[in-house]
C-alpha cells in the first residue's frame, strides 16, 4: 500500500471544487479562469475590489450566470451550469448581494419560500425552529411585510431564508453591505454560530477586517483572477490584499 499524500486528503474532503472557471458578459470577461476549493466545515472568504469578479463567481456556482467554461463539482457530482432551482435541493444555496428579500411577502412567507424545495415536513419544521432560534426577531416580526423591516433585519431574513433549505454550503454575497457597524458585528457573530450548525460557508465581503476575523482561508481576486490564496493569518499579512483593493496587480 502506498502512503496517502497530504493533497489527496484535501481533495477528498473538498465539498466544492471549481476548475478554470470563466464568466463572460458579452465581450467583457468578468472571471478569467480561476481554480478554488471549499472544504466541509470551512469559512472561505473571497476578497477584492469592486469588479474583481467575486459576485460573478458565486452567481456562476449556483447557475444564476452561465459559465463560459470550467467545471464545478459539488459533493462529488458535477454541477457545471446547473439550474439554480435544482441546486438548492442538492444542498447549495446563495444569499444574494443586496439581500433581495420578497418585500411584499410577509417574513413568514419569505422563510416559507426558502423551504420551498424541502419535501420532508419534519425537516421543514426543524428549519423553522432553527431559524427562529437563530433570529428571534424574525419570529417576533413573522406576520409583518418584510419590506418594512430595517436593513439589518432584512439581511437576517435573507440569511434565514437561505438556511430554510438546510444547505450544506451557503454562499453569502456581501452580507454586511449597507449596514451600520453594530449590525455588521451581529452578522459576523451569526456567521460564527452558523459554523457550529455545520454549515460550510463562502463569503464575498468588502469588510475585509471583519471577514478575516471569522474566515479560515481566503482567496484574493483582482481583475477576474485569483492573485493570492492562504489562511486568514497569511491574508492579514500579505500585501496582495492592499494591492488588490488599490487596483495594483
Amino acid at each position: 500500500m502506498r502512503p496517502i499524500r497530504q493533497e489527496e486528503i484535501q481533495v477528498a474532503s473538498a465539498l466544492l471544487t471549481a476548475t478554470s472557471l470563466k464568466v463572460r458578459y458579452g465581450a467583457v470577461e468578468a472571471v478569467r479562469g480561476i481554480d478554488f476549493e471549499i472544504r466541509a466545515g470551512e469559512i472561505v472568504a473571497f476578497l477584492g475590489a469592486n469588479g474583481a469578479g467575486k459576485s460573478s463567481t458565486l452567481n456562476a456556482l449556483v447557475g444564476l450566470v452561465a459559465l463560459a467554461s470550467g467545471k464545478v463539482v459539488f459533493d462529488g457530482h458535477e454541477i457545471t451550469n446547473g439550474k439554480p432551482e435544482t441546486l438548492v435541493s442538492a444542498g447549495l444555496t446563495l444569499s444574494p448581494e443586496g439581500r433581495r428579500i420578497f418585500p411584499t411577502l410577509s417574513v413568514a412567507d419569505n422563510l416559507r419560500m426558502g423551504a420551498y424545495s424541502v419535501v420532508s415536513k419534519q425537516k421543514v419544521a426543524e428549519a423553522w425552529e432553527r431559524v427562529f432560534e437563530l433570529f428571534p426577531i424574525l419570529y417576533e416580526r413573522r406576520n409583518q411585510l418584510s419590506g418594512t423591516l430595517s436593513g439589518g433585519q432584512q439581511q437576517m431574513l435573507a440569511v434565514g431564508r437561505a438556511l430554510m433549505s438546510g444547505p450544506r454550503l451557503l454562499l453569502l454575497d456581501e452580507p454586511s453591505l449597507g449596514l451600520a457597524p453594530k449590525i455588521v458585528e451581529q452578522i459576523f457573530e451569526l456567521i460564527v454560530r452558523l459554523r457550529e450548525h455545520e454549515v460550510t460557508m463562502a463569503i464575498v465581503e468588502q469588510n475585509v477586517a471583519m471577514c478575516l476575523e471569522v474566515a479560515d482561508r481566503g482567496y484574493v481576486m483582482a481583475s477576474g483572477r485569483i492573485v493570492f490564496q492562504g489562511n486568514a493569518s497569511e491574508l492579514k499579512s500579505t500585501t496582495f490584499l492592499q494591492d488588490a483593493y488599490l487596483g495594483g496587480n
Binding site: L64, P84, V88, N110, Y116
Partner: peptide, 18 residues
C-alpha cells in the same frame, strides 16, 4: 406564494427551488 415571489424577483425565486 411562489408565484408572488417569482413576480417580485424571478432569479431569487429560482434560488429557492421554485
Amino acid at each position: 406564494i411562489a408565484m408572488r415571489a417569482a413576480a417580485e424577483d424571478f432569479a431569487v425565486a429560482r434560488l429557492m427551488g421554485i
